[in-house]
Write a protein that binds this DNA or RNA. Structure first.
Lengths: 132, 132
DNA sequence: CTGTATCCATGATGATACTG
DNA sequence: CAGTATCATCATGGATACAG
């Protein structure tokens, strides 16, 4: 994994990793959460709003449209009354799950370490946003 | 207060994933790139600037400090002339690499598919930022 | 219920100039 | 070379009101 070792002190050639583009897939603070909450089964708009309480309708709509345009999520309008929409991950979108889970694992580990360090240090005030 | 699922089947109740916090590890557009370019070997400030041409010194400095404060990166000042600094990943920081690479893989795949679709569609103008 | 359109606050970034 | 300070800009997100 990783980059090839550079020969000397001189710069390693930028190996053009598609990182920037990849991360733009998860643009914004919520896209990963949306994908996460779609991982088990299709969800409706209102359900997602409930799953992710702090997301606004505007942003949720924007993320869903973006994910749909990129082929990661499908949108199916149900002919019910009142009308409802159901969102689901495409196989492509599903491929992001392992990566997201890997990030979540490392994140959890780091958070645990921080909490450990904080308790050792004596409960120093550390205003950090709560996860999820 | 449980959310009544539409279908009796279970489903993916909000499993409180530490996603939000985890992603904050990679805050900003450049942190993943910084980690990536440190993956092979320690790099100096100027080298990183060269590796990531479009990053400004201000942002690179900010990201490095943030990553350092979180225990993902170490900073070593070399007593040379002119002075230089060398940054390296900590074991903890290294744990992020598989996740980042997983994202990069999916991203690359998606980009390839887009390019394929674009060529089929006849090279439609699609103002997208270039990867890397 | 499912979105969308404004308006507004905030944060991240780049450019430039400057210090050690 | 390594880093910081200041300024201006732009994208993102929230709140609200409103539409289909």
């Amino acid at each position: 994994m990783g980059l090839p070792l550079r020969k000397s002190k001189v710069a390693a050639p930028p190996p053009a990793c598609p990182l920037t583009e990849s991360l733009s897939l998860l643009r914004g603070a919520w896209a990963p959460n949306v994908i996460w909450y779609l991982s088990a089964e299709p969800r409706r708009f209102g359900e997602l709003r409930h799953d992710i309480p702090r997301i606004s309708a505007r942003v949720l709509s924007a993320r869903l449209r973006e994910l749909e345009s990129r082929g990661l999520v499908t949108r199916k309008v149900l002919d019910t009354s009142p009308p409802s929409a159901e969102y689901a991950l495409t196989p492509l979108g599903r491929e992001l799950l392992p990566a997201i889970e890997a990030l979540a694992r490392v994140g959890r580990k780091l958070i645990d370490q921080w909490e450990l360090g904080a308790s050792h240090a004596g409960a120093r005030s550390r205003p950090r946003r709560v996860a999820v």
